[in-house]
């Protein structure tokens, strides 16, 4: 059965194996359809990955970077660059944190837009 990282796990996926925490306490039994509450619980307990039924791997095409106009991405990128003092992209950890911080800003901007259109 495919393993998925917790960040790629989505509501509606079905577990194919019991999910236990580090103390081996059962959190979610096998065959359970994941809800938003389950996903939160798994993150809280620090579970890194789970096994789910085949054919339910996540769709990676949902790239937030592609959903925002390039000039807005550039604006967010510039604002982050201005606060990352003494940033050195030759260090993988610097690069990864910057990348994730940028993605997070982009998601926040996209969410704000969705809210604006819905209200």
């Amino acid at each position: 059965m495919p393993k998925v990282k917790i960040d790629n796990a989505r509501e509606g996926m079905v577990t194919s194996k019991n999910v236990n925490n580090m103390d081996d306490m059962l959190l979610i039994p096998s065959g359970c359809e994941l809800s938003a509450r389950h996903l939160k619980l798994l993150r809280t307990w620090g579970v890194a990955e789970i096994e789910v039924e085949a054919g339910e791997e996540p769709d990676e095409s949902q790239n937030p970077m592609a959903q925002l106009p390039p000039e807005e991405v550039a604006e967010l990128h510039a604002s982050l660059t201005s606060i990352f003092i003494r940033y050195d992209e030759s260090f993988p950890i610097h690069k990864e944190v910057f990348r994730l911080a940028l993605l997070r800003k982009i998601r926040q901007r996209l969410n704000a837009k969705t809210h604006a259109t819905n209200s």
Binding site: K5, I6, A48, F84, I85
Partner: peptide, 26 residues
């Protein structure tokens, strides 16, 4: 500012890079 991270401090924790994203989400 984001006070610079000493990459050796990150190495000292011996954690996988995927932990960064899950901690931020958490």
């Amino acid at each position: 500012m984001v006070p610079p991270l000493n990459p050796k401090a990150w190495e000292r924790l011996a954690l996988g890079m995927d932990v960064v994203e899950s901690v931020m989400k958490g």
